[in-house]
Design a protein around this nucleic acid. Structure first.
Length: 828
RNA sequence: GCCCCGGUAGCCCAACGGCAGAGGCAACGGUCUCAAACACCGUCCAGUGUCGGUUCGAAUCCGACCCGGGGCACCA
């Protein structure tokens, strides 16, 4: 805070020092379970994503907390009982890497940062209920993360399998599909992800694919659109059919393919299986085995970058066998290629080159036949090289010939397949199971014991938590296998089932497991008898508004939705979706670029708070744009925000009437502005239009200023009413200034719980309104009329207006549209 | 390629299908000052990305396209 900024008398620093201890004493935001359980007060659960404790808070945190706090504080003012907890997502790699660098324990770094962030959050004045604080790295927390893992395990939703997995060479651990970005890099560190074949733990997210997809339809209304879109794309539902092809002449079980176009079955001219799938190896003829092996070797060598390119030339190898098309008995050569994915569908496709571009490219490369079965009126794909995918007339398609409707064609084809027991309609998803094992230290150990006699044995509940062994510094160095494996005394245990020698699982869980249920732990963070209290979950859940970053559009939000459905099916909660509404905040950038050290364009939050104060920074972030838009710090003005706060603060000092003054006789014009503003403010907050809320508050401040200086004067009770309303509105955004105003206005703290001003409906009706008279849509005159003027009266008034008469200029009036009291449009 | 979101003054952003401007930043003018900074008061500024359609009337609804941001992508 520079001296110049304090020159007008409002000392921001002093205000921060004055009110922080008062709030800590009053605890105005402590959520009362009893009030909600008894139904005495209606609940609201406000949640914002808990941070990872890396250093101090930054601008991004400042933005999301400021936005989040508007709604939480609004709910308190409206009389709800509000649950607004905060904690730390405190397992994770940065702490572990710091521990290796500094030869210490990850907990040292983690818990020191937590204390730093806690102090910053408190100074920032967010209305969190600190009695519910939690850290996912506490044994008291991860005990229940482990318990939940075992709940999934018991239900067959946690399993181990061997499979090619994503491997981050930088972080030395495997990654879930969701943690690999579209360009093939690690979501966390940016390194290029490679593949490894490993046995790993998975959660069966695919078991809920259909429901995760279907519930998005409801969420569409209350979630920000791009997140719903991202989830829908990620889950990737597609309808089609499984079709079974017998293999000709050799002893091999029939091969099933997935297709979205069973109606083009008559156009299939070959079959392709994924080169790296076991199916390719089992199908291949002796003569072709060598060729397949050579091809597989070639494919393995291709880098992931190449693999991601969709326009590279098609390659493949003939397997020396033929499949029988179930609809017409035709023999189709079976090929192997890397353009078919082993882990999507069945890992095998029927190729219809005329109507699928990929198949056509392959057919042309391998000189395979192309047969058109849907005539779309476009050029024959066999000639043009361009596959046609639209609707058209079916030809050479047996019973489908002559049909022109694609949906009907698909239906007819599926019917035929089902009649012949050669296939069935089905739905396929792009979503894969969630790979949750990690080969790193600072996470929750997987509570499984591997016994040579009994296999995978869950650690009994009464032996939870499986605490991390004490490792530090160099012990934690990544070496491609979990550091826990080196702690032999920890690894070697008696099998819980047979008592024989056994070993603990040495992997830890993905930290996204920790955060998939933390919103439930907030309900009873210190309960050591259960993960959470189902009665409290019923009372407080689901979350009424969740605010967080776009980077979790798929990751965390999808996992939390999955956990919620599992827990519901386990009978522990009674809601289907965890987050009734979701809002994502934009990023804070600077000069059109993401803030980064290398660009040197970072804006330090602490320095901004020091210079302008908490309130001005919060106000700036809330006012800058709609919540979901990015904020360019170069476009905003914390100095302007501070100027406004000082203007507002001065109003409180100018009020010359006593607290409780009867407002009924106050200046009606100002009262109208006040009541209209308060009325609209509620709707703006509920629509998450916080930037407009601030603009309207500014308007009210300006109107009050005018009333004091050149209107009704400072003693008019309407001025007090306006200033008090400003204080309450500001309490959502600028809590220190609001508290200062409230005190200057002669009230006891805290303004945060003062209650929302009661709106007098009578004051929302204007005394007179301006009616616009248009001639052919152009404004020609304005009339001051009563708000309840009758349409006929308004029309008469308009047509009699001299300006209107002149504008009509004697032309015949063809039609008059009247929208009393605001508009008359004369059509000539 | 498919799917979402957006395009309004120099900039950030408002505007139930009805006067394009609420608020802010910047700029400019004034007051204050020896002068400046700060502060305060005031002023200026666009016809809504393009083309077409619906309508008495379109920033707003519909269609096509352009530009920007995001998701998915050899997913059959």
């Amino acid at each position: 805070m520079s001296e110049t900024h304090a020159s007008e008398g409002y000392d921001v620093k002093a205000a921060e020092e004055r009110w922080l201890p008062v709030w800590q004493r009053l605890e105005p935001f402590r959520a009362d379970d009893a009030a909600v359980l008894s139904g005495e007060r209606e609940k609201r659960y406000a949640l914002t994503m808990f941070p990872y404790p890396s250093g101090d808070l930054h601008m991004g945190h400042a933005e999301v907390f400021a936005l989040h706090d508007v709604i939480a504080r609004y709910w308190w003012q409206r009389g709800y009982e509000v649950l607004n907890p905060m904690g730390w997502d405190s397992f994770g790699l940065p702490a572990e890497n710091a521990a290796i660098r500094n030869d210490e324990h990850p907990a040292t770094y983690t818990y020191a940062n937590i204390e730093t962030q806690l102090a910053s959050m408190q100074r920032y004045g967010v209305s969190f209920d600190w009695t519910r604080r939690l850290h996912t790295s506490d044994p008291a927390y991860y005990r229940w993360t482990q318990w939940l893992f075992l709940q999934l395990h018991a239900r067959g939703l946690a399993y181990r399998k061997n499979s090619p997995v994503n491997w981050c060479p930088q972080d030395q651990t495997v990654l879930a599909n969701e943690q690999v970005l579209g360009d093939g890099t690690c979501e966390r560190c940016g390194a290029e992800v490679t593949k490894r074949e490993l046995t790993q733990w998975y959660f069966r997210t695919t078991a809920y694919a259909q429901e995760l997809h279907d519930c998005l339809e409801e969420l569409q209304a209350t979630w920000i659109g791009k997140v719903v879109n991202a989830q829908r794309n990620w889950i990737g539902r597609s309808e089609g059919a499984h079709v079974t092809f017998a293999i000709d002449g050799v002893d091999h079980e029939p091969v099933t393919v997935f297709t979205t176009r069973p109606d083009t079955l008559w156009g299939a001219t070959f079959m392709v299986v994924a080169a790296d799938a076991p199916l390719a190896a089992s199908l291949v003829s002796e003569e072709q085995r060598g060729a397949l092996e050579a091809y597989r070797e070639e494919v393995r060598k291709a880098s992931d970058i190449d693999r991601l390119a969709t326009d590279r030339p098609k390659t493949g190898v003939f397997l020396g066998v033929h499949a029988i098309n179930p609809v017409d008995g035709e023999r189709l050569p079976v090929w192997a290629s890397d353009y078919v994915l082993a882990d999507y569908g069945t890992g095998a496709i029927m190729a219809v080159p005329a109507h699928d571009q990929r198949d056509l490219d392959f057919a042309r490369a391998m000189d395979l036949p192309v047969r058109r079965v849907v005539d779309t009126g476009e050029d024959d794909p066999a000639v043009s090289g361009v596959a046609t995918t639209g609707a058209g007339t079916y030809v050479s398609s047996g019973p489908l010939d002559g049909l022109t409707d694609k949906a009907a064609g698909i239906r007819a084809a599926i019917e035929l397949l089902e009649e012949r027991s050669a296939g069935t309609g089905t739905v396929n998803f792009r979503l894969r199971d969630w790979l949750l094992s990690r080969q790193r230290y600072w996470g929750a150990p997987i509570p499984i014991v591997h016994c040579p006699a009994c296999g995978e044995v869950p650690v009994p509940d009464d032996q939870l938590p499986v605490e991390l062994p004490e490792l530090r510094g160099a012990d934690l160095k990544p070496k491609g296998t979990s550091p826990l494996g080196a702690a032999r005394a920890w690894v070697e245990v008696a099998c819980p089932a047979c008592g024989g020698p056994a070993e603990r699982d040495t992997d830890t869980m993905d930290t996204f497991v920790d955060s998939s249920w933390y919103f439930l732990r907030y309900l009873s963070p210190n309960d050591d008898t259960q993960a959470f209290d189902p009665a409290l979950a019923k009372a407080w859940g689901p979350i009424d508004l969740y605010i967080g970053g776009d980077e979790h559009a798929v990751l965390h939000l999808l996992y939390a939705r999955f956990f919620t459905k599992v827990l519901r099916d386990a009978g522990l909660i009674d809601w289907d979706e965890p987050f009734s509404a979701y809002l994502s905040q934009g990023k804070v950038i600077n000069n059109g670029r993401k803030m980064s050290k290398s660009l040197g364009n970072g804006v330090n939050l602490g320095a901004q708070l020091e210079e302008f104060g908490v309130d001005a920074v919060r106000l700036t972030l809330v006012f800058a744009s709609p919540p979901e838009d990015d904020i360019d710090w170069a476009d905003v003005s914390p100095a302007g925000s501070l100027r406004f706060l000082q203007r507002a603060w001065r109003l409180a000092g100018d009020v010359a009437s006593e607290p409780g003054a009867d407002q009924a006789g106050g200046d009606v014009a100002l009262r109208r502005v006040t009541h209209r503003t308060v009325h609209d403010a509620a709707q703006l907050v509920e629509g998450y239009r916080f930037n407009v809320l601030v603009a309207r508050t500014m308007e009210l401040v300006n109107a009050t200023r005018k009333a004091i200086d050149s209107g009704c004067g400072p003693a008019d009770p309407a001025v007090r009413e306006a200033a008090e309303s400003v204080a309450v509105l500001l309490s959502l955004v600028a809590p220190y200034t609001a508290e200062e105003m409230w005190a200057r206005l002669g009230h006891e703290p805290t303004v945060a719980r003062a209650g929302w001003p009661v709106v007098d409906e009578a004051l929302l009706v204007e005394e007179s309104v301006t009616a616009v008279v248009q001639i052919a849509g152009k404004v020609k005159a304005r009339l001051e009329v009563a708000p309840d003027i009758a349409e006929a009266d308004l029309e008469a008034l308009a047509l009699a207006d001299p300006d209107v008469v002149r504008a009509i200029d004697g032309r015949p009036v063809r039609k008059v549209i009247v929208r009393a009291p605001k508009l008359v449009n004369v059509v000539v």
